[in-house]
Simulated assay, not measured.
Amino acid sequence: MRDMRSNPTCVAVSASRAVGEASAARNAARDIDLEDTCFVLAFVPGGWDGALVAQTLDELLGGLPVFGCSTAGQITMQGYETDALLLMAFPKAHFRCASVLLDPLKPLSAPMIATKAQSHAQKFQHTAGWHRLGLIFADGLSKQEDILISTLETVLADLPIFGGSAGDGLRFETTYVLHKGQAYQNAAVLLLLETDLPFQGIGFDHFLPTGSKFIITDADPEERKVFEINGAPAAQEYARLVGCRVDQLSPLVFAENPMLIEYKNNHYVRAISDADETGALSFMAAIDDGLIMTLGQGQEIIRTLENGLDIRDDKGRSPDFILGFDCVLRKLEIEQKQLGRAVSDVLETARVFGFNTYGEQHCGVHMNQTLVGVAFFEPDQRNMC
């Protein structure tokens, strides 16, 4: 069995920590084989000039299709990073790709999304014996991912779709997606992929419901804001439920004490991003009046990570690589608990590459504080990679 810490065989990965967008793009692009590559995914540090990154990569890679987004952190060959430009080059030998720019997201037109997605899927010629999947990268500040992924799940029912929302650290200021040499805000990129590599979807968190239930009694679904919980001011009631003062609420408190909803016998996190001066709570996924929720209780995060990434194919083989979308609030909790190096070791060993998100998409649901991804395995004839 191949050393788990070795480089993947069926994708090329390059990262640059150079200062400045242009320098980082030049350094990372040097390792990309233009002749053999079908497309590139680029995961960009938050706060960087997306237009400059997109244009520079387009020029350096000779127009090779580049897709991706701004991020709240990157998962590289060294695990968690914050200021690395990560490129993943997917080879022509194992991948085909068609892309759809969904613009604008807000106001979102579900019929437009459905029509575009269906049209491109129908035009994407099927290769006999190859497998299909979809990847979605959406502006994390659009607040439209819930409707977006549910629409795609409905119209592309036979296509498993995985993705993440673009971020920019914990600033919540500017997020964007990359599509063929340009950066777009208030937009999403849908990639339709075909591959001869077997794959498995993954999705897990580290929370269990406590059984302490409460109800959302006043909310603005469009803005994902909650004004009242159990008839009381939202921040005040949430602070009471978790056992702290309102002035002690912080991103770490929110990360360690998420709110859960139950859907199809599963519990999903509805993460809080902040509490404003009026006492309202802002959420990172869909919220509405009348929702019955419960507090989540965290489990041991490294153990749940190791278990979630312990994947095998039908021959007992580990993945060649995992494309991962990991919520920024997980990273925040991990770093606050000084577990960053230990978690990075787990990610490195499992060959996970990707980014920290403002939300994750899987099974038609937009969720928070999860690690969602796709595990790709070598084809049956190993010498094909």
Rank of each mutant, 00 (worst) to 15 (best):
280 A>V: 03
353 F>R: 04
323 L>N: 04
311 I>Y: 00
172 F>D: 10
246 V>R: 12
277 E>M: 14
168 D>Y: 07
48 W>A: 10
238 Y>A: 12
258 P>K: 11
311 I>E: 01
55 Q>F: 04
269 V>W: 02
51 A>K: 13
10 C>Q: 05
49 D>E: 14
380 D>E: 15
273 S>R: 13
37 T>M: 09
294 T>A: 03
382 R>G: 06
340 G>W: 07
215 I>Y: 07
85 L>A: 08
108 L>H: 08
112 M>I: 13
317 R>D: 04
229 I>W: 08
152 L>G: 05
93 A>D: 13
293 M>E: 05
237 E>P: 05
99 S>L: 03
260 L>S: 07
144 Q>L: 05
8 P>L: 00
246 V>I: 04
80 Y>P: 06
246 V>Y: 06
290 G>N: 03
366 H>V: 05
129 G>S: 03
222 E>Y: 10
252 L>A: 08
39 F>Y: 10
385 C>W: 00
296 G>W: 11
355 F>G: 00
96 R>Q: 07
233 P>K: 13
93 A>L: 09
185 Q>T: 15
216 I>H: 04
145 E>R: 06
307 N>I: 04
366 H>N: 13
242 V>S: 06
185 Q>F: 07
309 L>V: 07
312 R>I: 07
278 T>S: 15
7 N>Y: 12
144 Q>V: 04
22 A>G: 02
184 Y>P: 07
66 V>A: 06
68 G>R: 06
15 A>D: 14
194 E>Q: 15
194 E>I: 02
347 L>V: 02
322 I>R: 01
353 F>W: 01
191 L>E: 03
184 Y>D: 05
331 K>F: 01
354 G>T: 02
271 A>P: 00
340 G>N: 10
44 V>C: 11
130 W>A: 02
72 A>R: 04
95 F>A: 00
363 C>Q: 15
255 A>C: 12
239 A>K: 00
232 A>N: 13
348 E>C: 06
258 P>H: 11
20 G>H: 08
152 L>M: 11
321 F>S: 01
306 E>V: 02
379 P>D: 05
169 G>P: 09
141 L>D: 06
53 V>R: 01
335 E>M: 10
